[in-house]
Amino acid sequence: MALTPEPGAASNLPAIVTERRDLVEPIVVPNTLWQSSNPVAYNGGQDSEITHLREFEASGAGRRDDARWAGPLEVIPTKADIVLDLIRANSLWPLLSGLACCAIEMMSAATSKNDMDRWGMFPFRASPRQADVLIVAGTCTTKMAGPLVRLWEQMPEPKWCVAMGDCTCSGGRYKRSYSTIQGIDRIMPVDVYVPGCPPRPEGLIYGMMKLQQLIKDRRGHWPDRAIGPTVPEDL
């Protein structure tokens, strides 16, 4: 499907992404299909200034594979990775950080009725240094974006992110709001999206089990991660 920009589109935006390399770079996926009825409302239509991920990519630090997956374990035969991934998949400590409504359902998923502990996902760590998976549960506002990104960057590799709820997946019911982020995949990489407003606890557990499957398929590898919304290759 080839789409051409409409004549009225802003010219300072980058072209439509075509390669996988390009998908890694931008934080804000340029939109050329639609124009706001009031473009000035967004500070003159300027780009986002959240560029830390872009700078991180440019610095090349993310491409060093230090102690993330292989590191000192490179000497072990490749098949050992399967075991390591199994271990990682079965011990996912979420970060104890709820943003809004979904946090209650996240807690409900960990409590007696829907016991996430059964899969080894229970010890909710209060400190990001010890957490493996960031469940972004609830609406992320623009004021919260900075702290949230810092939390993500404070987590040690390997780490994963689960976007829980419509607000974190795409903006949800706050899609017109002046102060919410329209999907957290604009500021940080996301591995699993769990839609729903809020999703049931079973939904979150299903998402976490999907994450386990992804880990077993080696999805957490940093260079393979696409930053930004998941856009089809042919767009």
Binding site: I87, N90, S91, G120, P123, P158
Partner: peptide
């Protein structure tokens, strides 16, 4: 807490603590 606790990894989840330990070993320092 009136829940089951770990029951998937190993018999009755008994391998889970080992898995936690090994996972912690492999995290970024």
């Amino acid at each position: 807490n009136l829940r089951y606790g770990p029951d998937r990894v190993g018999p009755f989840g008994s391998a889970l603590s080992v898995v936690h330990g090994l996972k912690v070993l492999m995290k970024e320092d």
